[in-house]
Simulated assay, not measured.
Amino acid sequence: MIPLQVGQSAMTAGRTIGEGDVSLFAGLVGDFTPIHVDETFAKTTPHGTRIAHGPHSMATAIGMATHTGLFGERVIGLVNISWDFSGAVKIGDTIRSRVTVEELRPTSKPGRGLATYGFEVLNQRDEQIQRGRMKVIVRLDDKAEAGQ
């Protein structure tokens, strides 16, 4: 595991969101809102086509971030997520995210810390479509991480 440092940042690989992704997510969570699954209806909306579920895009951004080395086996549990959705993800869009370690502090339990990660989710045109923060409990294996 690479040591965590405040200000450390990584860009994820891109992931194209396909029709199967949207259908699978709809079935998984039971959300069959027409804007996601009914192309005829979706053509009548300002988007002009179906869009991915916001939480699906958020989860994809977080999932892709697990490949950056900023999480790994150090993550123990999720504490909080705060997320803003400023743009839609259409079927065929490719998203990626910039992830930054915004805060890292030890907790009262030895060897554990609270890490805050900032996310900026971008589409293939480099437009920001989501922004969020995720707080997780992490294992602090390095003395520098633990603030010693």
Rank of each mutant, 00 (worst) to 15 (best):
D38K: 06
L114C: 09
G7I: 11
L4Y: 03
D84F: 06
I76C: 08
T68H: 04
E19T: 14
Q124I: 08
I76G: 13
P34L: 07
D84S: 13
G14Q: 07
D84L: 01
I91C: 01
I17N: 00
V29L: 10
V6K: 12
F71Q: 13
S9G: 00
R50D: 03
N123V: 06
H67R: 15
R15H: 14
D21L: 05
V136R: 09
L114K: 13
K143D: 15
H67N: 12
A115V: 15
V138S: 10
I17F: 03
P55F: 07
K43C: 05
L70M: 04
V79T: 14
P110K: 10
D38M: 00
P3W: 13
A42L: 09
V29K: 08
I137L: 14
D84Y: 07
V138Q: 09
G69M: 05
S23H: 15
P106K: 14
T94G: 00
E103A: 15
F119Q: 07
E73G: 13
T107R: 09
I35H: 02
V22M: 05
A146P: 03
A144V: 13
L78D: 07
V101M: 01
G7W: 05
P34C: 13
E73D: 15
T12H: 01
A61V: 00
N80V: 11
G113E: 08
V136A: 14
R74C: 12
A146H: 09
A26E: 11
F119A: 02
L140G: 06
H47G: 01
P110S: 00
I76T: 14
K90Y: 05
P46F: 11
K90T: 04
P34A: 02
E145V: 07
G111F: 05
R105F: 01
T40I: 12
V138K: 03
L104A: 02
M1E: 13
V121Y: 01
D142G: 10
E103S: 00
A65W: 03
G113R: 09
D31V: 11
I35T: 03
A115Y: 14
A115E: 09
S23D: 15
R96D: 03
E103R: 15
T12E: 04
E73N: 12
G132D: 05
T12Y: 00
E73P: 12
T44L: 10
A61Q: 06
D93V: 04
R139S: 14
H36L: 09
I137H: 09
G48N: 03
P106C: 03
M134R: 00
P106L: 02
L114T: 07
W83G: 10
F32Q: 08
V6G: 06
G48V: 02
V99N: 02
E39P: 15
E103C: 08
V79Q: 08
A88E: 10
E19R: 13
Y117W: 09
I51T: 12
V138R: 01
